[in-house]
Amino acid sequence: MSDEAKDDVVKVIRTPVQLDYNYSAGRSASRFLRSIKEGKLIGQRCPVDGRVYFPSRGSCPQHGVPIEGEPVELVDRGTLVTFSIVRIPAESVPLEIPFVTIQVLLDGADTILMHLLGNCDLEKVHMGMRLKARWKPKEEWEESVANIIYFEPLDEPDADYDSYKEHI
């Protein structure tokens, strides 16, 4: 067999998998998503220790108990817990690079939310800064956390480190 013929063997095949699903959000996420369509931010309180989970979920992942009580409505402001400056474009992010991804602790919540920071010089981003949500125009609201375009700085003194240190 010539070398050329030897190289001409099939060594790799393509076996793509494409399957269609109708993904189901479930009760808690549906409640959260329906609320955010109305501009409301909904969390839920663990019946054991009272921690507020945001976004709401069906059970407390710590205590393993169902969360069935009334939802807790949160304000759209909070504290920047940590951040990262991203210099690679991402299809799902509507901001130009470099942009800032953040973890924000909403006032009254006990869990952090992943989101974006906008309207802020890169040099000024820091932990503890106070933030407020910048919403899309109301007529564009849908069942999505993307109704909040990003969080932006609030003209307030930084939060005390102790108030968010357990989330780092």
Binding site: V10, K11, V12, I13, R14, T15, P16, V17, Q18, L19, D20, Y21, N22, Y23, S24, A25, G26, R27, A29, S30, L33, R34, E143
Partner: peptide, 17 residues
């Protein structure tokens, strides 16, 4: 009812022989 949305699982597997 729970909200639901279409979702396509799309893997472009290649397999060594």
């Amino acid at each position: 009812e729970s909200l639901s949305a279409p979702h396509v699982l799309d893997y472009t597997y290649k397999r060594s022989l």
